[in-house]
Design a protein around this nucleic acid. Structure first.
Length: 194
DNA sequence: ATTAGGATCCTCT
DNA sequence: GAGGATCCTAATG
């Protein structure tokens, strides 16, 4: 059988040409590392083209260009003028969909992450897109880099994680779309599901 | 436990 | 000049 995108080495069985909602669901329970530092993804959100909460809604600009690039790459944006947050691009080039990585359960490189954040609260170490960005040292120079190559690593972990689903957080538009996914009962979620 | 305000900066009105 | 896919601290109940 011929190798497809979903089976390509380094993608942990995920096909980033799929819908961002599908990918967001599938990313729960995978291991994400940046320079060997990170852990298990426990919270994601999907954003899609033509939906007003998405950064691609306004069309392609210099700051969101990576979101319109090839799938399986990183899109980094600045949040509230302060934080750098990490997305993984979905769909075909030019489309404009992505998955925001909102929280991970820290497993590898915990001391490094604590140092970068200047805090040692394990529960809050990577809980929320801003904290996660700081802990993994997410910066805009990662824009357009493939998750299947260094400095990234995406790998399988749990076989059948229990996934919960709900509304996205911190939005003022498209508030009702149930496009937030989480690992059930994880203590590292940025906020509970209900 | 919950709330309020500040930090900070790029884009758009 | 406003406001955002946020986080932290400090002040309350």
């Amino acid at each position: 059988m011929k190798a497809k995108t979903s089976g390509r080495r380094g993608w942990a069985g995920i096909n980033f040409f799929d819908n961002s909602v599908v990918v967001a669901r599938q990313l729960i329970g995978k291991v994400l590392l940046l320079d060997g530092v990170g852990g298990v993804i426990v919270e994601t959100e999907a954003y899609d083209q033509g939906e007003p909460a998405a950064h691609s809604f306004i069309g392609e600009r210099a700051h969101n260009a990576a979101l319109f690039g090839p799938p399986g790459r990183a899109y980094v944006y600045r949040s509230y003028g302060i934080h750098w947050c990490l997305n993984l691009v979905c769909r075909e080039p030019g489309y404009g969909a992505g998955v925001l990585i909102r929280a991970i359960a820290p497993t590898l490189g915990v001391p490094i992450m604590e140092r970068r954040r200047g805090r040692d609260n394990l529960r809050l170490l990577c809980s929320g897109p801003g904290r996660l960005g700081q802990a993994l040292a997410v910066t805009p120079d990662l824009n357009g880099k493939s998750v299947a190559a260094t400095p990234f690593k995406l790998a399988n972990a749990e076989q059948n994680p229990k996934v919960v689903r709900g509304r996205r957080i911190g939005l003022t538009k498209a508030v009702d779309l149930p496009w937030r996914f989480g690992l059930k009962d994880s203590e590292f979620l940025s906020a509970p599901f209900r």
